[in-house]
């Protein structure tokens, strides 16, 4: 600390002398928080359910690889299932989610996503005749029950996913609904053979950008011979699943505690399998290729 007459200390003293005289607690802010609280808790429950379901089934897969050794499904390709259109009540909805595979090569799973106050439940099932059926259940907020619509996606098979495949919304009797829903199944890049991972190895989490918007994110591990792990960070998005970057750790990540953007840096706080806290930073979050990312990591024992 410098002397009393130091210009820096004088400047800091003058700033420190400013006392906050605002209304605290501010009633308007408190009311805004309470309103948002109820919205967030509703979304949070849905988000957790969605994360759980997707984590159970993971993301996948053009052709489901069934590893001979160990009998474990491996992620061979990233695809996105997306529904764009209007619900039966005429409200706009856009649903982005991942197709889910099962071991025998059929797809089955569900996700719950909130869109414009609606709860949307979607399941993907393989029918007996080998065709795939997408079911969308739309529960209007405040309404009892809900409407269930069958979305036919017969042009798409599990092993021949085609980008941009579309289908019409069908009513319960199998008749095309006047309001069509477009189903898009977009193929992403195939996963290189040396980076194949089981679905359980993929870590699902969320990341908050500089504008406070939450994005889905996946950490895909690639074990290395020297024991270090390299995780490729993928951002959930329709289609391509952009690569955010790559990070290295000494031990496998067990859980992501928080992820956020700080002054252009994507920060991931996590715990490793051996219980240590790690803070991982990707300094160029928009890098398309992990090989080109300028990633750094450090461990925080806090």
């Amino acid at each position: 600390m410098l002397g009393k007459n130091d210009s820096v200390d004088s400047a800091l003293d003058s700033l420190r002398s400013e006392s906050w005289t605002g209304n605290t607690p501010n009633r308007a802010i408190e009311e805004k928080l309470m309103t948002e609280f109820h919205v967030q808790r509703t979304k949070g429950g849905i988000r957790r359910y969605r994360t759980l379901l997707i984590a159970l089934a993971a993301v996948l897969v053009g052709s489901v690889g069934f590893a001979a050794a160990g009998g474990t499904d491996l992620i061979t390709q990233w695809v996105t299932v997306r529904i764009v259109g209007t619900s039966g009540s005429g409200d706009d909805m856009t649903v982005d989610l991942m197709l889910t595979p099962v071991e025998d090569g059929t797809a089955s799973g569900s996700a719950v996503i909130q869109s414009d106050g609606k709860n949307l439940a979607l399941s993907v099932e393989q029918t007996d005749d080998g065709q795939k059926s997408l079911s969308v259940s739309i529960d209007a907020a405040g309404a009892e029950g809900g409407s269930t619509y069958e979305v036919s996606a017969n042009t798409v098979t599990l092993t021949e996913l085609k980008p941009g495949a579309a289908s019409k919304l069908m009513d319960a009797a199998g008749r095309p609904d006047a309001e069509t829903v477009k189903v898009e199944i977009e193929s992403g890049a195939a996963v290189p053979a040396d980076q194949l991972q089981g679905r359980d190895d993929v870590i699902e989490t969320e990341w908050q950008d500089g504008d406070g918007v939450w994005h889905g994110m996946k950490l895909v591990p690639s074990p290395r011979a020297n024991g270090r792990m390299i995780y490729t960070l993928l951002r959930e998005a329709p289609g391509a699943l952009p690569v955010l970057g790559a990070i290295q750790t000494n031990a496998a990540i067990a859980e992501v505690l928080d992820a956020y953007e700080d002054d252009g840096t994507l920060v991931v706080e996590a715990t490793t399998a051996d219980g240590a806290d790690v803070v991982l930073e990707v300094t160029q979050p928009n890098t398309r290729s992990p090989a080109k990312s300028n990633a750094a990591s450090r461990t925080a024992d806090r």
């Binding site: 700033l15 420190r16 400013e18 906050w20 605002g22 501010n26 308007a28 802010i29 805004k32 928080l33 948002e36 609280f37 967030q40 949070g44 957790r48 908050q208 406070g212 939450w214 928080d258 956020y260």
Partner: peptide, 26 residues
């Protein structure tokens, strides 16, 4: 307030801080 020096901006940012905290609290 000591960072931004403006009463109204402070109110807005304090609301943003606690909204962000609310979202991240889980």
């Amino acid at each position: 307030y000591r960072r931004v020096g403006d009463v109204h901006t402070t109110d807005d940012l304090v609301a943003d801080v606690f909204l962000a905290a609310m979202r991240a609290l889980p």
